[in-house]
Design a protein around this nucleic acid. Structure first.
Lengths: 229, 229
DNA sequence: TTGCAAAGATAGTATTACTATCATAGATGC
DNA sequence: GCATCTATGATAGTAATACTATCTTTGCAA
């Protein structure tokens, strides 16, 4: 049996809470699918409205613009990852084991989804995040968006991973950078593997998971040794 | 004394070679500055034309659209980095030393510019690449662009770094992924340090270069050990 | 001096990214 | 059963964007 899961989102992310109405939920869910299918640049509120059988103006009542919709979707993803990390590391004592359990989550390889967020296409979402997430912060107005706490879920997740790294090795001096670069590397390498494979050492056969092995190697080779000052 | 340097670019990158005319060169050089100042999203050919005292239509004679201009600028940067890598590692025999000399280049910390590409604001260019380069390939049409060899300079650079890694450790199984993730990590950690510092361990004082130390640590901790299969 | 290529000048189109306003339908309170 | 309130629908409109087309001018080259 599945439990239903609701992730509370920062109010600054929207004009009207999309989880509070049917239209709102469909905007988010179909938004993910549309961005997945045609890419963020090609996505417009008009196209999304047509797909939903509604009007542009209705979507604007929920989100200021499509960038904010992307930020919302990506923030939701980080909250969802954070939840999975907590769930998967619960009752594990060994810091090493905890970290090892996190790696498949970053690649969306963990099959057991305890509480499934209803109706959200997690596979599409994962691909959207890989291709589009960095566009949420690679803008001129990062600092403003950051001041509004729009990236808090990402920071929280990185903070959690950094803490686990410090549990494993209390002397490690780069825990936060290690955490953020682990997440980014997981995504970039997944994108490269799919689209620019010559930038990787991964063949692309879904059976052997060299990318997972690579991330494991990268993470532990760095945090196992205490860096000399 | 400086030598003048001209980097040959793939013909697919432009409609008319911008290095062959005064207007073309100004489009590239002022384009870098404009994107640096207002960001890629806000940049339009109209604004760039006004800045150049010319017309939109003239710019369209050189570049199909602003995405292609970005791809050109970024490709130029990778060629320039590649040149610097060759220059800085020339006559060095120790693979370790070669790799160590590359790290400051990735962060644009190397002060000695042997042949300076005329009139290009390298500092602005570096910042543009950090913030915008991934937008060159994080699109729906990556595969088409890749087929047209638009990303060859990036791949060449990664290939060169991968070869150096294999010189250092011939048994290392992830040389290409290690190379691409080193470059990407250098850039987004620099971005985070500047804009979302809580995702890093870097204070931001320009005197101590913790980011460089971090990259050094990441690279060598992974490639020093032979990964067990 | 004729010819050609680069750039200037002007105009036009479809689409985007919004904003504003008014009407309507359904739920809720009394 | 009526008032009311809220979410959405419907329509319209605007400034800007991302181009394309065409015609003219300029400057250099044969």
């Amino acid at each position: 049996m599945n439990y239903s899961l609701h992730l509370q989102m920062n109010e600054k992310l929207y004009l009207r809470d999309p989880e509070q109405s049917d239209l709102g939920r469909r905007i988010v869910r179909q938004g993910i699918l549309l961005i997945h299918e045609i890419g963020f640049e090609e996505t417009t509120f008009r196209k999304l409205a047509e797909r939903l059988g509604t009007k542009e103006a209705s979507i604007y009542r929920y989100f200021e613009n499509k960038h904010r919709l992307l930020v919302y979707i990506v923030a939701w993803y980080w909250r969802w990852l954070d939840y999975q990390v907590v769930y998967e590391t619960n009752n594990i004592t060994s810091p090493r084991q905890k970290l090892e359990r996190i790696l498949p989550i970053l690649l969306q390889r963990s099959t057991d989804t305890p509480a499934t967020p209803d109706d959200i296409d997690l596979r599409a979402l994962h691909n959207v995040v890989i291709r589009e997430a960095s566009k949420a912060y690679l803008t001129r107005h990062v600092s403003d968006d950051n001041r509004e706490q729009l990236f808090k879920p990402y920071k929280d997740l990185c903070g959690r991973l950094a803490d686990l790294i410090l549990d494993f090795n209390p002397n490690y001096p780069y825990a936060r950078s290690r955490a953020s670069s682990l997440i980014e590397t997981a995504h970039y390498q997944a994108f490269f593997m799919e689209n620019l494979p010559s930038l990787t050492n991964f063949g692309g056969e879904p059976t052997d998971d060299t990318l997972l092995a690579f991330l494991h190697h990268l993470l532990f080779s760095s945090i196992e040794r205490t860096v000399k000052e």
